[in-house]
Structure formats: C-alpha cells, structure tokens
Write a protein that binds this DNA or RNA. Structure first.
Lengths: 128, 128
DNA sequence: TGGCGTTATGTCTGAGGTAACATAACGTCT
DNA sequence: AGACGTTATGTTACCTCAGACATAACGCCA
C-alpha cells in the first residue's frame, strides 16, 4: 500500500498550476523549446501549448517569451513571471510528499490487509 | 490564490481509497444504509455500490455487511475491516490539509500577481 | 397477497481531459 | 528559392469515469 498525494494552486477557483504543468515549465527552462519540452514529457505540442496559454490567461501576462524562426527554428524561454511562479511552486511542494509519507507510515505502519489474518465470524464460501 | 491538495491510498498501483469513498463509508456507518448514504452525498446508488465493490475486490474481503429485505427494507453496516480502514484513513488525512496551507502561506505569503507591478522590458501592445 | 425500502447488477450516456491531425507563419541557413 | 525546426491555432477523436436508467430479488409488514 502506497500513499499518494497531489498539490496544486487555484486562482479565483480556477486551476492555475500543478505538478504536471510545473514539469513542463522546468523542461522548457532547461531545453529552451516548448516543442522539445512537450516531447520529453510525452505530450503533444498542441496540448502543452494550450496548457501554457491557459496559465498565461489566468495570470493575465505571458509565461513564455517565444520566437518562431531564427536560429534553431526558434524557441521559448520563461518570462520573469513564469520563472518566479515556477520557483515558488517548487518550494511549496518540496517536502510535502515526504510529510505525507511519514504520516502514512505512522498510521498504517502496523496495518495488515486482513486476508492475511484468520477471519473470525465469516459465513463459509458465501461468494456472490 | 488558494492551495489545494488531495490524498489517497493505492494498493498494487491501483486506487484503493480516498476522500470521497471515505465520506461514503462514514455516511453508511452513520445511516446504516448504502442507499441513504449515496443520497446524502448526491450519488446514485448504482455508483456508490460500484465504488464499494471495487474497494472490496482490492481488499479481497467485503467492506459492507448487507441485507436486502427485513426491517426497514434491509441495510448495510461496515465490516470490521471496513471500519478499521476508515479509521486509519481518517487519522492519515487529519491535519495534512492544514500543513499544506501553512507551507503555502510561507512560500506565497508575499506573492503578488505581477499585473499589479509595472513591467520593465515589455514590447508595447504586442498582443497576439 | 401486495406494498415498501432495501440490496444487487447490467447497460447506457455525458463530460472532461488528453491526444492526434491538419495547417499556416516565421526566420535562419544552405 | 527551398529546407528545416520552431511557434501558433482550429478541429476532431478518444478514453476514462461519474452518474443515470432500468430491472430483479429479498424479507418484513399491513
């Protein structure tokens, strides 16, 4: 048994950013290209572009500074706003998964799935 | 901006239980009827039943002890296994949301959505 | 015996999120 | 001029899952 958790941030009750979009921004930052970043995550470029646009619309400012054409065909870099949001989210999420894991171990450390125990009051072979 | 989080537990990489299913089990425990519990959460009985079956299949043992017919038309109670899983999950989740909120405030407490700042190097009116 | 409220189960639909397909435009380099 | 790799964008298809609909069976009670 494994604990799972997900953390994200909303703005005006609309999804702003979460772990997957952050992964995308990290990849763009590292690779300098939205297309390459999408490919690395196994996303379609179209989808990745849409996610970035959605974020930019909610922030009311661009997340990527992009150019089509030019050396290498063009590329995308993070804007200062995109960079800052990325870094803040990374700090936000850092360690939280570990806290979840610790609490899970505290609570479920001595838990055994009961089919390894002998059941006491169990009607015999009443399988549906 | 609001932090959001979700916690659940998997077993053999398959979804076992999370906040919504726990809500259902709590309601069954309180009301003594799966149908009434589903109604309280706004679920269809069919859907609630399916969720419980899925959990039981993964646990390899029943979660509810049910009877059709009888006083009140029948009903469902939690099995000991269901009860224990419910209680452990409740302990697991308790307080975690608060920890998330605290970390969010630490990291984003002084964050201002940038359209309230004056941008420095911004091409004028380059709207798409 | 018929009504009632429940459990049990098969089947179908709808919505959201993801991916795929198809273009167009851009700028550099050969 | 043409090839290349990128950004930009509309449209379509799909897949999962939440939920609805329909039906049967059960056991008490009037």
């Amino acid at each position: 048994m494994e604990p799972r958790s997900k953390f994200w941030i909303e703005h005006q009750s609309r999804y702003l950013i979460g772990p997957r979009l952050v992964q995308l921004l990290e990849a763009v930052d590292r690779l300098g290209s939205l297309r390459q970043a999408a490919a690395e995550l196994g996303w379609s470029y179209r989808y990745a572009w849409g996610r970035v646009q959605q974020l930019a619309a909610l922030l009311d400012q661009p997340v990527l500074a992009s150019s089509a054409g030019g050396p290498g065909g063009g590329g995308s870099r993070l804007t200062a706003a995109g960079q800052e949001l990325l870094e803040r989210y990374q700090q936000f999420e850092a360690g939280l998964k570990e806290q979840v894991r610790q609490r899970f171990n505290q609570v479920f450390g001595n838990y055994t799935l009961a089919h390894s125990e002998r059941p006491r009051d169990h009607r015999p072979s009443r399988r549906r």
